[in-house]
């Protein structure tokens, strides 16, 4: 009132550093929540673990198997990894929706940072949580006759990070597009089933009728499952039942794992950009 008030010269006024710090802050908040919610960690792990044990044991008895080599459980393992990653990844979208509902989103969007930045931070947070969950499932590899090969496990983890990013970006896109909480949850449960079932996570996609196999080919999750699966089979010594382990084909040509991973990355980036634009525009 008396004199001209001192203008707060906030340190680090370089724009990029501001945005990067904002990403870190938003990410860190998700980590705090993850650490605190031990029960959720356990519950989201339990479902794929049970699937692997129960479904795996039950169905592998029906299917061709050998004393060594891969069986249905080996087939199921990458599917369960994707399932484990998918739930917290989509959960990041859910948390954005609940932040909006609880009002916390307003606290974030009035900050002097770009909204796209907040979305990226949220995405990285979700992906980190998802990858952590995936990593916690890796010790069950032995049940699925997947060797505890450090290189293989590292590869799987890396791929899970990428897959988690794509799925998180999908959750974010959905969360910023569908603004009503109820609609968001309804849409989520509608979409999740086909995305998992039509990805070859639980049964081979090869046996599906024409139009459904199209759905499998178009489903990005199929490539996620197949990339993980082929990373595993690439390092198995025993026989691999072909009928079970055939992944998505483009007119008889199976895209190499690298291409599949690239595809997942591209889809993730496209969804994130779309989501970011949408989020940046909304009031």
């Amino acid at each position: 009132m008396t004199a001209v008030q001192a203008e707060p010269a906030l340190p680090g006024s370089g724009r990029l550093t501001d945005e990067l710090r904002a990403i870190q802050v938003v990410w860190h908040r998700d980590m705090l929540h993850y650490q605190r919610d031990r029960i959720k960690v356990l519950v989201t792990l339990l479902q794929p673990a049970l699937m692997l044990l129960v479904l795996g044991a039950g169905l592998s008895a029906l299917l061709p198997t050998s004393a060594q080599g891969a069986d249905y459980r080996t087939f199921l393992f990458p599917g369960m990894l994707v399932m484990t990653v998918h739930s917290p990844a989509i959960g990041a979208g859910v948390s954005l929706v609940s932040d909006r509902q609880m009002g916390f989103l307003r606290e974030m969007v009035v900050a002097p940072v770009r909204r796209e930045t907040l979305l990226v931070g949220k995405c990285l947070g979700g992906a980190t949580v998802a990858a952590c969950q995936g990593a916690l499932l890796l010790p069950l590899a032995g049940i699925a006759r997947v060797p505890y090969d450090p290189v293989l496990l590292a590869l799987l983890l890396g791929e899970m990070v990428l897959i988690a990013l794509m799925l998180t970006a999908f959750g974010m896109l959905l969360a910023v597009t569908v603004r009503r909480t109820e609609t968001f949850h309804a849409l989520l449960s509608l979409l999740m089933m086909p995305l998992i079932f039509l990805s070859g996570a639980m049964f081979p996609a090869a046996g599906l009728p024409g139009w459904l196999s199209w759905a499998v080919t178009l489903n990005p999750v199929s490539y996620a499952v197949d990339a993980l699966r082929r990373t595993i089979t690439g390092r198995l010594t025993g026989p691999i039942p072909d009928r079970l382990f055939t992944g998505p084909h483009w007119g008889g040509w199976a895209p190499p794992v690298q291409l599949e991973l690239l595809l997942i990355g591209v889809v993730g980036v496209v969804m994130l950009v779309l989501g970011g634009r949408r989020f940046g525009r909304s009031e």
């Binding site: 340190p11 006024s13 501001d18 710090r21 802050v25 705090l32 929540h33 605190r36 609880m102 900050a111």
Partner: peptide, 19 residues
């Protein structure tokens, strides 16, 4: 406020976001 965080964590979130 983020009710799942402590008072300080809420304040730190804000402070960091504002640099």
């Amino acid at each position: 406020l983020d009710q799942g965080l402590t008072a300080w964590e809420n304040l730190r979130f804000h402070a960091r976001l504002y640099g």
